[in-house]
Design a protein around this nucleic acid. Structure first.
Lengths: 256, 256
DNA sequence: CTCGATTAATTGGTATGACCAATGAAACGG
DNA sequence: CCGTTTCATTGGTCATACCAATTAATCGAG
């Protein structure tokens, strides 16, 4: 009944069929990115979209699902007002994708470390200019809790360490870099590559390192904060290096 | 007939229902990330998964679609051997998500510039250590083509400029940082924020800047490559700043 | 027997129709 | 006027059916 809508496009030498739900997803994405659909605008109900597009409900649902995973549409809720709503892709979608990418075996641990050594010291430096007093207080509070629990609870220690770093990143007030940095840091910590640290001595050193970084940020001494953060990371990297040999030299990232 | 499988979990104070396709997606994702399903392993056919899981075909398809968007499953093809295959999430999924995040209005152009100024000079420095002769040759070739076409074709100029930067990033041989850097650079260039550059003089300056960066990388002079790349970016930023006032100072990223 | 052409089986893509559960609005009753 | 009940809306899910593409199996000619 319906003439062939088969649209073909060349992609990498191959010829792929453009599936209907893909087309619809593209169109909706275009409407959102071009601003014709603004953040907060509700999408028509699934059954309305079926009428509008002439597609089946399954195809409509798959198209919506795609944009939902990309972060451009809110998850739906059943009920009378449960339609999808246009939203901005969140920092969390960036983190998720970074974690999935790094989690695969395309990225070596050394490359991940190298990336962290590029970004995290720079964030510390930026934080020196942009921090507020609240940022300082938050960082201080987390470090105090780390000192308090010591190595009693391994899981809590990992989480608090993550929290401290996230809070330091947040003090830069650059949401883009923060999202990237958290994605990198979380992946490495969750990977359990750092199951070794947890002795009382390790915790003491960690608290001390955090303290020195915090001091520098309070003093708004960018160079010092950069250096302290770099050394903190390198200490961590060196601990790892005792177990596995390095693939390549990480050190060119050292400032000055 | 089927007892309620409704699983609830608290998320941010709210209580959300876990939908069936979400559960299946989670399970499959878990199998992949834990390594029980390895890269290259084919998934059972949709109808087989229907039998295995007891779900409807629509739910199975939505679950698969989610993992496909996340990059963990290959797109399917019709035909007898068209089943999904497990794969690593690619750098492209990272780029896509960065572009979607930045494309929304959560990230200001100044924050994007700041992020680039953190990452790109660092990549130039790393490239000094890791580059091969092929990298050098590729960069030289692209720059030559830029010089050749001049400002004749605006679109081609933008693309070639992107290519040059991508090639420079690639010379670092850190796929993670490369994916991030390309995501940032592409977004800014595609956003058309740089429609202004295109005069013959601009092109000449661009070629010159690229040339100086390349020289430094050839000489393996990391500090110099870092500095040149930083200045190249700052020149671009200053051009933009003439049109729109800065939100904040970008300069703390200057090395030394 | 070998190889090319034809046929059949497999698999994803899509549509239709139906029913449930949750939600919120409207109608109702005190 | 307010609380309760009813009901329409909407997403979630399943079952079934058919098409199109692709590959495997079969068959036939030489």
């Amino acid at each position: 009944m319906r003439e062939s809508l088969a649209i073909r496009f060349s992609a990498g030498g191959e010829t792929a069929v453009q599936r209907r739900y893909e087309i619809l997803a593209q169109e909706l994405r275009g409407l959102i990115l071009s601003g014709e659909l603004k953040v907060g605008d509700p999408l028509p109900a699934e059954r309305d979209l079926v009428e509008i597009t002439g597609l089946g409900r399954g195809s409509v649902r798959e198209a919506i699902r795609i944009l939902e995973i990309e972060g451009l549409l809110s998850p739906k809720k059943p009920g009378r007002k449960g339609v999808s709503v246009v939203q901005n892709a969140s920092d969390q979608t960036v983190q998720r994708q970074l974690e999935l990418f790094i989690g695969g075996d395309s990225v070596s641990n050394d490359h991940l470390l190298q990336a962290r050594m590029v970004i995290e010291p720079a964030l510390a430096r930026i934080a020196c200019d942009m921090r507020t007093d609240d940022d300082i207080e938050a960082m201080r509070a987390i470090n105090a809790r780390i000192e308090a629990i010591g190595n009693a609870d391994r899981g809590a220690l990992v989480q608090l360490n993550l929290d401290w770093h996230s809070q330091m990143f947040a003090a830069s007030h650059n949401d883009l870099l923060v999202a990237i940095a958290i994605g990198l840091t979380e992946t490495q910590h969750r990977a359990g590559v750092m199951g070794q640290y947890g002795s009382q001595e390790h915790v003491r050193l960690m608290v001390e390192a955090h303290g020195k970084i915090l001091e520098s940020i309070i003093a708004r001494d960018g160079e010092r904060a950069y250096r302290r953060t770099y050394l903190h990371l390198r200490g961590y990297a060196d601990t790892l290096a005792k177990k596995n040999p390095r693939e390549f030299d990480l050190t060119p990232l050292n400032p000055r």
